[in-house]
Deep mutational scan, measured.
Amino acid sequence: GATAVSEWTERKTADGKTYYYNNRTLESTWEKPQELK
């Protein structure tokens, strides 16, 4: 079946920190989402 992984995108802030952005829920998080573990 379909997985939720594609909803999350790994992004970088202007100062180079990595965060994760969810295209479906429009939420962002510093922690790696469960779906990516």
Results as ranks from 00 to 15, higher is better:
residue 1 G to H: 12
residue 1 G to D: 13
residue 1 G to S: 13
residue 1 G to Q: 12
residue 1 G to W: 09
residue 2 A to I: 14
residue 2 A to M: 14
residue 2 A to Y: 08
residue 3 T to R: 11
residue 3 T to D: 12
residue 3 T to H: 13
residue 3 T to N: 12
residue 3 T to A: 14
residue 4 A to Q: 13
residue 4 A to L: 11
residue 4 A to M: 12
residue 5 V to R: 09
residue 5 V to D: 14
residue 5 V to P: 13
residue 5 V to Y: 10
residue 6 S to F: 09
residue 6 S to P: 14
residue 6 S to T: 11
residue 6 S to K: 09
residue 6 S to E: 14
residue 6 S to L: 11
residue 6 S to R: 09
residue 6 S to D: 11
residue 7 E to S: 06
residue 7 E to C: 10
residue 7 E to N: 08
residue 8 W to Y: 02
residue 8 W to M: 01
residue 8 W to Q: 01
residue 8 W to E: 01
residue 8 W to D: 01
residue 9 T to S: 11
residue 9 T to N: 07
residue 9 T to D: 11
residue 9 T to K: 05
residue 10 E to V: 07
residue 10 E to Y: 02
residue 11 R to A: 08
residue 11 R to G: 07
residue 11 R to I: 14
residue 12 K to M: 12
residue 12 K to E: 08
residue 12 K to A: 06
residue 12 K to W: 08
residue 12 K to L: 11
residue 12 K to I: 13
residue 13 T to R: 03
residue 13 T to F: 03
residue 14 A to S: 11
residue 14 A to P: 14
residue 14 A to G: 08
residue 14 A to I: 11
residue 14 A to H: 12
residue 14 A to T: 08
residue 14 A to W: 07
residue 15 D to F: 05
residue 15 D to Y: 06
residue 15 D to H: 05
residue 15 D to P: 00
residue 15 D to S: 09
residue 15 D to N: 08
residue 16 G to I: 00
residue 16 G to E: 03
residue 16 G to M: 02
residue 17 K to W: 05
residue 17 K to A: 07
residue 17 K to Q: 09
residue 17 K to Y: 09
residue 17 K to P: 01
residue 18 T to E: 04
residue 18 T to M: 06
residue 18 T to L: 09
residue 18 T to V: 11
residue 18 T to W: 05
residue 18 T to F: 07
residue 19 Y to Q: 03
residue 19 Y to R: 01
residue 19 Y to N: 02
residue 20 Y to Q: 00
residue 20 Y to H: 00
residue 20 Y to W: 15
residue 20 Y to T: 00
residue 20 Y to R: 00
residue 20 Y to E: 01
residue 20 Y to V: 00
residue 20 Y to G: 00
residue 21 Y to G: 01
residue 21 Y to W: 08
residue 21 Y to H: 07
residue 22 N to P: 00
residue 22 N to L: 00
residue 22 N to S: 02
residue 23 N to K: 10
residue 23 N to D: 09
residue 23 N to W: 13
residue 23 N to P: 10
residue 23 N to Q: 10
residue 23 N to Y: 11
residue 24 R to T: 10
residue 24 R to I: 15
residue 25 T to I: 02
residue 25 T to V: 01
residue 25 T to R: 01
residue 25 T to E: 01
residue 26 L to I: 03
residue 26 L to V: 03
residue 26 L to D: 09
residue 26 L to M: 15
residue 26 L to G: 15
residue 27 E to T: 06
residue 27 E to H: 04
residue 27 E to V: 08
residue 27 E to S: 04
residue 27 E to I: 05
residue 27 E to A: 05
residue 27 E to L: 05
residue 28 S to W: 15
residue 28 S to E: 11
residue 28 S to P: 03
residue 28 S to L: 14
residue 28 S to Y: 12
residue 28 S to N: 05
residue 29 T to W: 05
residue 29 T to L: 07
residue 29 T to A: 09
residue 29 T to P: 00
residue 30 W to Y: 10
residue 30 W to R: 04
residue 30 W to E: 07
residue 30 W to G: 04
residue 30 W to N: 06
residue 30 W to I: 06
residue 31 E to K: 05
residue 31 E to D: 12
residue 31 E to L: 08
residue 31 E to H: 09
residue 31 E to Y: 07
residue 32 K to D: 06
residue 32 K to S: 05
residue 32 K to F: 05
residue 32 K to E: 09
residue 32 K to L: 09
residue 32 K to I: 11
residue 32 K to R: 12
residue 33 P to W: 01
residue 33 P to L: 02
residue 33 P to S: 02
residue 33 P to C: 02
residue 33 P to T: 02
residue 34 Q to N: 13
residue 34 Q to C: 14
residue 34 Q to D: 15
residue 34 Q to I: 13
residue 34 Q to P: 15
residue 35 E to H: 07
residue 35 E to F: 06
residue 35 E to Q: 08
residue 35 E to K: 04
residue 36 L to F: 12
residue 36 L to V: 08
residue 36 L to Q: 08
residue 36 L to C: 13
residue 37 K to A: 14
residue 37 K to E: 14
